[in-house]
Amino acid sequence: MTLPRQRGLTEQAANTAIDTACRLLRLPSIRNEFSDIADRAMKDQLTYRGFLAELLMAECDDRARRRSERRIKAAGFPRDKSLRAFDFDANPNIDAATIHTLASCEWIKKSQPLCLIGDSGTGKSHMLIALGTEAAMAGYRVKYVLATKLVNELVEAADEKQLSKTIARYGRVDLLCIDELGYMELDRRGAELLFQVLTEREEKNSVAIASNESFGKAHMFRRTRARRCRNSTGSASLPPRFQMSPGRPPRAVVSSA
């Protein structure tokens, strides 16, 4: 389709032409905002280049926002949680400065792991979702899943001979958030399958885990990890921890093991 081009378009004809062109070029933000931006440009006496820059930046900003929304939706968070809404006063053992350092996502860029450990009600899930949301907004692919749901999916995949494909799918995201590890006991098979997911991601992509138990106690991970260490030439390492238990000072270590 070729749009008619002529000089001296009326205001209404110009608006119609802009609307049609934006639809063809798939520029919804410019189509929705060009009139307001044009009015502001005239008021501020912008040059043609300045006006064009305002239009293009509006489109770029809106596309970035929509991409963030898609990544957050794809992550599968059960509810909206943000760092801004977290009550640091309710748990003074959590260092706000450390949390905001984690929100910079530098540890995800370096493919490092994070474990949030604390009792019920200390805000582990809130923090996990909030940090995952920050990562999605920063451009990372994120996936949130409950530990029991992940294990059940892995068991079904193993029974259907689809385990490798399932593990690979969880291995592709930049950040895998595993919540509520420790609230329900895993049998040996479930622990082994979950450990395969962690092994697949080790030193490749980040994993963030929220647990009410230390990894030394969490559902056979001690024995599973010990067996893997004996069968490998290298030494496996547990994720760095952020301690969220009341009465203890917080710890946040995101350096390579």
Rank of each mutant, 00 (worst) to 15 (best):
A74S: 14
R70K: 09
N93Y: 12
A75Y: 05
F86A: 03
D89N: 02
D87I: 02
D89G: 01
A74F: 06
D80N: 15
K73H: 14
F77G: 04
D80F: 15
T98V: 09
T101D: 10
T98I: 07
I72V: 09
K81A: 00
R84I: 01
E69M: 14
F86H: 13
R79Y: 15
R66G: 09
A74Q: 05
R67L: 08
N93D: 10
G76C: 14
R65I: 02
A75T: 00
R84T: 03
D89W: 00
F88W: 01
T101Q: 13
A74E: 15
T101K: 15
S82D: 07
I94M: 06
R84K: 03
F88K: 10
K81W: 10
R65Y: 00
R71L: 12
N93C: 09
R70L: 12
H100M: 02
R79W: 15
I72T: 05
R79C: 15
S68W: 12
T101V: 07
A75R: 00
R67W: 00
D80R: 01
R79N: 15
D95F: 10
A90G: 09
A85R: 11
A75P: 02
F86M: 10
A90K: 08
F88E: 06
R84H: 06
N93A: 07
P92A: 02
R65F: 05
A90W: 12
T101G: 11
E69D: 06
I72M: 05
A85S: 14
A74H: 14
R65G: 04
D80V: 06
D95M: 08
R66C: 09
A74G: 06
K81Q: 14
A75V: 00
F88S: 01
F77V: 00
D95A: 01
T98A: 13
P78M: 08
S82R: 12
A75L: 03
K73R: 15
R67E: 02
A74L: 13
P78K: 05
R67V: 07
S82C: 04
G76P: 14
L83F: 04
N91T: 09
G76M: 13
F86R: 14
I72Q: 03
R70T: 11
R65K: 11
D89R: 05
N93F: 12
F88N: 06
R70Y: 04
A74C: 11
P78A: 11
D95Q: 12
D87H: 12
N91P: 08
F86T: 10
F77A: 03
G76H: 03
A74R: 07
A75G: 00
I99C: 06
A90H: 13
I99K: 12
D80C: 05
A90Y: 09
R67Y: 01
S68P: 07
